[in-house]
Design a binder for these strands. Structure first.
Length: 153
DNA sequence: AATACGATTGTCT
DNA sequence: GACAATCGTATTC
């Protein structure tokens, strides 16, 4: 399976009240404090997993949440929304938390396809209750696979 | 040990 | 637009 990332959100670690790492390192968020490029998978609302990649040097927290993909091949299921894309890829905490997303040998892999966008839209983040005005959600403007929409037209 | 809540989504009105 | 589903963590007792 493969998909192109079309929507992400940034979380800024210990300076960000909306970040899981705001209150320091715990067993749950330990990956965010580890080396960059690794998968932080968390379980939310009792039924969904969400995928992040750690982004700061080891010892500092920070990550990016993948919110939506545009299917490229092998994806029949919806990948619009952080819970849905994990469901489509079968991502779970047990299986994927902590894996190196830069390694060709890991099941999950993020690669640079050289794509450059000039139509990136920046908005506040979705689903949070603190720091709700901060512009930290990045998406491809007009892309039909971004989250937050119903399929009706 | 008990409780409150969340980086979501689907269904109903 | 409102709310239920559902459970791992963090917080509080």
């Amino acid at each position: 399976m493969a998909g192109r990332i079309v929507e992400v959100e940034a979380y800024f670690g210990e300076s960000d009240p909306s970040s899981h790492s705001y209150s320091g390192k715990t067993a749950r968020n330990a990956v965010l404090f580890g080396p960059p490029g690794h998968a932080y998978v968390y379980f939310i609302y009792g039924m969904y997993y969400c995928l992040n990649v750690s982004c700061e040097p080891e010892g500092r927290a920070g990550g990016v949440l993948f919110r939506a993909l545009e299917p490229i091949r092998g994806l029949e299921l919806s990948t619009s929304g952080p819970g849905r894309l994990c469901k489509a890829f079968g991502i779970t905490r047990d299986r994927d938390n902590g894996v190196d997303l830069t390694s060709p040998r890991s099941d999950l892999q993020i690669r640079d396809d050289g794509y450059v966008a000039d139509d990136i839209l920046i908005t506040p983040r979705i689903g949070i209750t603190k720091d709700t005005a901060r512009p930290a959600r990045f998406l491809l403007a007009g892309n039909p696979y971004v989250s937050g929409k119903r399929s009706s037209s």
